[in-house]
């Protein structure tokens, strides 16, 4: 019995040590961070995302975008996140406090998306890119997400307002009389991507020069 207790208490002590140190201490240190109002009249940052953006995040999560795209900006001088335009400042804990699921990510097979809504604010670009990444980013190894779009017959003389506009030389464009429109999932996913912005400063993280 002595051996069992030695191992039991040893195992318990070592894991309690790391749990307290790593998890509980961080929770004590910043588990109660709140959004902050920098100047009177200004909204509090980070912003609460729109309902559509939150739905879009669920699409982002269930498709597994995180396995190629991170959402964190490292400080200037540590990597080239700043020079690549992935963010004008380092991302800090407060930037994530409103997220029910935090998607920091550990892979950059594709670029970081922490600030993608600010970096590429064009809705059409994102739709074309999701439909077929090669349209906007020749040579990209991102998979197409064309299943988030539907091809339909053009009703009347005019294209639907949300129909994708393909470049003239695009080889897989729909045939005459047809158009490609985003499904609801594609729509909310792009709204989510556009909501990813690191365009505000926090007292603990100002824009880098």
């Amino acid at each position: 019995m002595k051996d069992l207790l030695t191992i039991f208490f040893g195992a318990l002590a070592t894991i309690l040590f790391s749990f307290t140190g790593i998890v509980m201490m961080s929770n004590i240190q910043y588990g109660r961070l709140e959004p902050i109002v920098l100047e009177e009249g200004e909204p509090a940052y980070p912003r609460t995302p729109s309902g559509e953006a939150m739905q879009g995040k669920e699409v982002y999560v269930d498709l597994g975008c995180i396995y190629c795209h991170s959402q964190q900006v490292r400080r200037k001088g540590f990597g080239a996140d700043f020079e690549r335009g992935w963010g004008d400042r380092q991302s800090v804990p407060r930037d994530y406090i409103l997220q029910k699921r935090v998607l920091l990510g550990t892979m950059r097979t594709g670029p970081d998306l922490m600030n993608v809504g600010d970096r590429i604010p064009t809705r059409d670009w994102h739709h074309l890119h999701l439909y077929d990444p090669k349209i906007t980013s020749p040579g990209s190894i991102m998979s197409p997400f064309a299943f988030l779009y539907k091809k339909q017959k053009i009703q009347g003389d005019e294209l639907s307002p949300n129909a994708l506009t393909f470049p003239p030389d695009y080889e897989n464009a729909p045939e005459e009389g047809y158009e490609v429109v985003p499904t609801e999932r594609a729509h909310v996913l792009v709204e989510y991507l556009l909501s990813l912005k690191l365009d505000y400063e926090l007292p603990e993280s100002k824009f880098a020069e």
Binding site: S18, F19, I22, V23, S26, N27, Y30, G31, R32, L33, P93, R94, Y96, I97, Q99, K100, R101, V102, L104
Partner: peptide, 23 residues
Amino acid sequence: TTAQTMIMWAPARGTVQSITNWW
């Protein structure tokens, strides 16, 4: 059980989740 609880059932705030995740 700790990780399931602090990430899935009663998510910890912000990146405390990520820390729990990698712990």
